[in-house]
Design a protein around this nucleic acid. Structure first.
Lengths: 247, 247
DNA sequence: ATTGAAGTTTGACGCAGATCAAAACGGGGG
DNA sequence: CCCCCGTTTTGATCTGCGTCAAACTTCAAT
């Protein structure tokens, strides 16, 4: 009896934001210790998603937002005629499902690219709590706004950059995000295929592969399959901003 | 004395959401009459923006969100190296400035394409009020979410459609939005230049022009300068979804 | 009305990236 | 350990759209 209770408590503690190393990055960023404890009660359960499995599918009803605890998840928008496009790659600390609030239906598929863990955050309860905790409300708004800002960046990339620039911008973006999470900014594992990168960047997989090879030949990076090392962040940055064409 | 007071009151009334024909479309959509009156107090002033003028500029501090009362406004993301891209075209009932909440700085320019009027909505006060009016909070979240959903659509368009499809999707989107505002779904005025359309769609103005000409030759539309008439919504729709290529 | 600047259309041509093809690689399951 | 299938690389060729150019239209300013 006592043991069972104990397990439940430990379970809760394990799920708690206050015990999570991501709480400075994730939804509760910037909350006081007391507020953090309230937010703990939001997380009704953790869920693990195996590589290749769906976290949610386009069209499904929205119950919860999902904060990624660990792993790597892609989101794909689908066109009615079957075309699909990767809309984003998400990693720990990211919040998924924001696009579904407007219609109460998910508009994209979320597929794990590696075994992942997410925290389920029921939207209604988040809304309720954010009415009482202004800093939670603010931070939630910030997160939604940052998603919009990110999308604007992708639009710029898709609408006015050449293949080389897109790839360079993509690698720099990954680098920056890994770095913000305490990992190496210059050496990491690409968890997605060339085709998925291409889909995200509006390119074909052959173009992605060729461009990576070119970068390697130019000494900008070292790629071996999915293992990537950036040899010159500066040169990559230059590539993104300076490159002439496509006024 | 009495006259002055009177003018102030009339002024307030004119600004009031409760008297605005857009209140079913705009921020206060779905609120009760009583709630609507609270929201009236949010709108601290109206502002008019002449054609060509900036509503706000990239980098400027965020004070308020802007609800468009009338007119037509484009938003442009800028790349450090001077490239710029139209990120959206906004019309009455739309809420602008959402991308700035994350950083408290606007990330895009907003330029009026025709003389326009906007309602200024101070963010802090909106946040405060939405803590007390759950349906306002919900609707605000919905609006942000819909902006994300719209962006996903643009990403799909830019990443995986050919020029014809992009243009057709663009025209259908305008059609649908005009129609939702009580205007004709098949006949309207394009307030933006071919170059701005191109920028939004990731195409050059020549391609936009040629494609419009082709649509006209095929009997899908009638264009004369900025005046546009859609002759077959169905055929345009078919063009967007069915067209073969670019798996 | 006149003039100029900005916007639009149309044609000819070139190229970045798509498509097709085939070989090489790698890693997970028996 | 080997086999197999999905992924990646690389080459050859094709094409949609960009680029350059020139004529035309529209509209605002004088």
């Amino acid at each position: 009896m006592a043991t069972t209770l104990r397990i439940v408590e430990v379970e809760k503690l394990k799920n708690a934001c206050s015990a999570c190393s991501l709480h400075e990055l994730c939804l509760p960023a910037g909350l006081s210790a007391a507020e953090l404890q309230s937010v703990d009660q939001l997380i009704d359960r953790r869920r693990s998603v195996k590589r290749g499995d769906y976290l949610f599918r386009s069209g499904a009803a929205l119950h919860s937002l999902y904060a990624i605890r660990s792993g790597f998840i892609k989101s794909c928008v689908l066109h009615e005629d079957g075309r699909e496009q990767v809309a984003g790659f998400h990693m720990m600390g990211d919040l998924m499902g924001l696009d579904a609030i407007g219609t109460n239906q998910h508009l994209c598929d979320a597929v794990a690219l590696e075994d992942s863990e997410v925290c389920e955050i029921p939207l209604k309860e988040l809304e309720g709590m954010s009415r009482n905790i202004p800093s939670l409300q603010q931070h939630f708004h910030r997160i939604m706004s940052q998603e919009i800002a990110r999308d604007y960046g992708v639009m710029l990339l898709l609408g006015s950059m050449r293949a080389e620039e897109r790839l360079a911008a993509f690698l720099l973006n990954l680098s920056q995000r890994f770095s913000a999470r305490g990992y190496s900014a210059t050496e990491f594992h690409l968890r997605m295929t060339r085709e998925e990168i291409g889909s995200y960047l509006g390119l074909k997989l052959e173009t992605v592969s060729r461009t990576l090879s070119r970068f390697q030949a130019q000494g900008l990076i070292a790629v071996q399959n999915k293992h990537l090392r950036i040899l010159s962040l500066d040169n990559l940055r230059e590539l993104v901003s300076h490159h002439s064409c496509r006024s």
